[in-house]
Amino acid sequence: MRQRPWLFLLPTLILMSISAFIPLMAVINYSLHTIFAGSAPEFVGLQNYADVMSDAQFRGALIRQLTFSLMALLIEIPLGVAIALCLPRKGSGVGLSLVLLGVPLLIPYNVVGIVWRLFTQSDIGVIPRILSLVGYDYNVSLNATDAFFTILLVDVWHWTPLVVLLAYAGLQAIPQTFYQAAEVDGASTWKTFRYVTLPKLRPVLTLGLLIRFMDSFKVYSEPLLLTGGGPGNATTFMSLFVARKAEAYELGYAGASSIIYLYVVIVMSYILFQFINRSSEERHR
């Protein structure tokens, strides 16, 4: 009788091991071998890892990735909160604005890539056209900075709505009494935001931060479809980098870099996760 919970969990555990554990094992296995088409894999120990770590291209991709994710978070979280604060709290407009805001979230990645590719194309795109009006010569396929910030813009456009929805739900959960009390205490708008809204939003914002960090770290289809990782390596982020290596059939190298990549994601997420736990513990004390 006492083993019953395990019995119910078993199918999930089996599925999870098939979907996550076995592929992971395969990748680790690859990362320990040198593999060439047609010949038997040769065991090389940690050589692939050493190669990856000393590869300037890999380090470049990692630094680019971290810069990208950091900038995405710095823009999306405050922007999302700001938009959520502007939304009406109740009334007939609420449902409609939430749906409209959520639209980008519903569009598949590849469609997003293609749509934005059209927007940014140097001959027919809307964005180059507008920017040329203010005298800026925008070219996503030639200018590395343009390319990088375009991908960032797409990410912000695509994912800020998620932060808005989270922040909006968080705002709705703050009891009105806190605002009444702040009013009675004669607090200014800024002080009310600083001492009531922000502390109360902290748990949901840390959650948003975590989700957005993990997601932006895996950005793949947007650079692939928009810029193809270029110009040069300007938009070759981690996923793209690893995929390129695998496509080139450097499976050992690709395996080792994916494992390092995975490790970085886990460590960063763990740090954020600790942060969330601490803030929720504080709330429950």
Partner: peptide, 20 residues
């Protein structure tokens, strides 16, 4: 207006500024 009435209120659920 409320802020000029100088009424103090204590609500059902305690209201404090958590971070202060």
């Amino acid at each position: 207006p409320t802020r000029d009435r100088h009424i103090a209120q204590v609500f059902q659920f305690p209201v404090v500024y958590d971070t202060m």
